[in-house]
């Protein structure tokens, strides 16, 4: 079949070569289309995803100083008392969005004896550095906050609850 009169582009070897080139091109083009834009930017993953994570909005603010300007009284009492080591939002929940819109976005206001019990109820596994009371026995009935100011929880006569 392949006589000397055939042009080179009619030669079987050339057609086979063309086919191989076509397959290679298709492979690379398809791989490129299937790979997301930033893949491989930093490693074997989609680089843009680092931005996706880093730019997420925070729910908790930067810390208790955020609250100081508007809740001067609470902050002052808190800073001088035994709860000063506890972030406002540890009790009040996420409040990063609250300062911009205080009336609409309200932080939680914890209530009930079970709340204080989370940290203060007697439990042998609990670090002794935190004062523990038997919540079922310690002045049962009223909310803890009737006698203890949550922001300065020392009992009356020990410098607390005004």
């Amino acid at each position: 079949m392949s006589g000397p009169h055939l042009k080179f582009y009619h030669q079987p070897w050339f057609r086979a070569f063309l086919l191989v080139v076509a397959i290679v091109i298709v492979f690379f083009v398809a791989r490129d289309l299937a790979t997301p834009a930033s893949f491989g930017q930093y490693g074997y993953y989609r680089g843009q995803n680092v931005n996706d994570w880093a730019t997420r909005e925070v729910a908790f603010s930067g810390g208790s100083t955020t609250c100081q300007a508007c809740h001067q009284d609470k902050h002052e009492a808190w800073a001088a008392g035994p709860h000063a080591g506890i972030n406002c939002e540890s009790c009040h929940g996420p409040a990063a969005a609250h300062p911009a819109n205080p009336g609409q976005v309200r932080p939680e206001v914890p209530a009930g004896r079970e709340f204080c019990a989370l940290c203060h109820d007697i439990n042998v596994a609990r670090a002794k550095a935190v004062q523990q009371v038997d919540v079922a026995q310690h002045n049962p009935g009223p909310d803890c906050t009737t006698c203890h100011n949550p922001h300065r929880p020392l009992p009356v006569g020990m410098g607390g609850k005004q």
Partner: peptide, 24 residues
């Protein structure tokens, strides 16, 4: 857990660290 990557890259503490009352 991401160690709160969106917080630590903004210079903030992870939420669990910030709310821990005892520094554990």
């Amino acid at each position: 857990c991401t160690w709160c990557y969106h917080r630590i890259t903004k210079g903030l503490l992870p939420a669990c660290v910030q709310t821990c009352p005892t520094g554990a």
